[in-house]
Write a protein that binds this DNA or RNA. Structure first.
Lengths: 330, 330
DNA sequence: CTGTTAGCGCTTTCAC
DNA sequence: GTGAAAGCGCTAACAG
């Protein structure tokens, strides 16, 4: 493995000059620059990143802590983040907290040890409740989850608005008893619950909610139990794509048909929601935009540590499909 | 930020002793060890990883290059790999080649620069055709894709066998004209094609195949076109979960019903295959086992660079569902 | 059992 | 415009 001194020797210059050329700094003659470049190629020289980091005290690594790597929503966001990161010459350490505050803590500590330049984080509820950007040695951008009072850069969906629009859509279609199955693990689920409540209150309807862990199996079990213990709702709604999948399984198992027996809607426009029968009305989230915005916020904060906090709120898109197809009530 | 010398001073020992304690090395008195540990806590000391790596020449970072991060198959594998990696005190740099040989090259170079301890790779077809483990400065374990002659540690499904079993399942159910839609981007698709051919040949049936890029949209377009240009097949088969999704979309669009009009089967037991109507017969891959085996192979190779190459071949599980439900022919 | 010390490879003054 | 040299923080060889 060639080192910088080898390149210097080969090019007939000092290591300082080689370093300058590599860093693209001015103050090097064209002739010297040229010779260095040739030598780098000739020796197939690659700088030692560990040494560079030690010396410069900086890293070109970002951390990304998602709550569930198997959730396509987070995968798509990750994808967008990585594309931008690598295009900017930065690497991404992807961590999966699994909605577990302890694992989250572990990864955040690890990223601190790693001396990352910044972190994009979808916090667990427990962390979010006491989150302060200043508790970290690196800049943090929150993604997907953020409380109104949180002081941090963040990119989130307008969950309350999205949930309200989804509910109004249902209410316009004569739904009176709308059951919401929402995830308790995240601020997102809670905010969607809030939108649900306000929309139902505005229409004078009685809420009917089940708090669950946001997994497919749990959602499925919850709906089956709910159907056993309560009169049949007009409509069931999931606060996330994973929960929605569980509801579909349960309805299927119960032999209930949409939209004839019951209406169904949820969040996240995952590919399968288009191919099931019936296809499902959802709030689609602009995942690529979310990811891109998050890393742009982070890169901006790294460049300008002292700038004011920014929050980007994106709007969900209501995609109407057969699962809520029913004449609109005037 | 406290440094090792601060800890040494605080504990009244030398930096060497601190280093020994931290590395868990023997040859330190209990008293000294105790004082060091106390000081580490008191000063909230965290070793500088860059310095450690520079000095020791080793990294505790692994690379994982998957062909498509949005494919649940790879996500599940990643998940298993990360769990094992972090449990062993190693970090994972996750890279997404997107089936693009150039991106793959970029990431492999980056991982080399990063001086990773090892890499788990699902190679593009173009790389696999000329792959030699010795071309890399780090150990490599292939996952999901591997040619018979490739000299490398690898964890793969027995694709030929799995495809054959799936075909025999169809043939037993009187299918005569089985159309296969397979991905050309990977060795996996090609091996499944091979199994398809041999099973059909054994039954004296004429093959009917379409080579496509392994995406949902492409699969969908291919089947629509196929239906327009050919007589209706008895059965259609997808060589991957993403392709299968496209086929479902196309059948739906064409108004064809399974299993009455046509049988349908594929690879990858993704959650949605259970909830569509009808639910779909698939070959399930043991993704968690694949991931776990891969990293175990890698860790073993890192520990024992010279040991013989090992290949782990796992068996797919045929899960029979309604999409191929039809009386069995005697 | 413990401490001293020489670098790992690079960036960055500082002097020329 | 260029080079010499001082470390970044740590590990490990060596001496005691």
């Amino acid at each position: 493995m060639a080192r910088i001194s080898d390149v210097a020797k080969h090019a007939g210059v000092s290591v300082a000059t080689v370093s300058r050329v590599l860093a693209g700094q001015p103050g090097v003659s064209d002739a010297a620059r040229e010779r260095v470049l040739v030598s780098v190629k000739a020796l197939d020289y690659h700088p030692d990143l560990a040494a560079r980091r030690l010396r410069s005290g900086k890293t070109d690594t970002l951390g990304l802590v998602v709550a569930d790597i198997r959730n396509p929503y987070f995968t798509e966001i990750s994808r967008a983040i990585e594309d931008v990161a690598y295009a900017n010459g930065m690497r991404v350490l992807l961590c999966n907290s699994d909605e577990d505050a302890e694992k989250e803590r572990f990864y955040l500590d690890m990223l601190r040890d790693e001396n990352v330049a910044g972190v994009i984080l979808s916090p667990t509820l427990s962390l979010l409740s006491r989150f302060r950007a200043c508790d970290y040695s690196f800049p943090v951008v929150l993604v997907d989850r953020c409380a109104p009072e949180t002081e941090a850069d963040a990119v989130v969906l307008d969950n309350i608005d999205a949930a309200q629009r989804l509910m109004r859509h249902l209410i316009e279609r004569s739904s009176q008893r709308i059951a919401l199955f929402y995830g308790t693990a995240s601020a997102t689920g809670l905010q969607r619950l809030e939108g649900y409540h306000s929309a139902l209150a505005a229409a004078g309807l009685t809420p009917q909610t089940r708090a669950i862990r946001p997994t497919t199996t749990e959602a499925r079990a919850a709906l089956i139990e709910h159907l056993r213990e309560h009169p049949l709702p007009d409509a069931v709604v999931a606060s996330s794509g994973l929960i929605l999948l569980g509801l579909v399984e349960a309805l299927r198992e119960a032999g209930l048909r949409c939209p004839d027996d019951i209406l169904l809607a949820g969040f996240d426009d995952q590919p399968w929601t288009r191919i099931v029968t019936p296809d499902i009305t959802v709030i689609a989230q602009p995942t690529a935009d979310i990811g891109r915005s998050a890393i742009e916020l982070l890169l901006a904060r790294i460049a300008q540590p002292e700038q004011a906090m920014r929050r980007i709120v994106l709007r969900g898109e209501l995609i109407t499909r057969a699962s809520t197809s029913r004449p609109i009530q005037e």
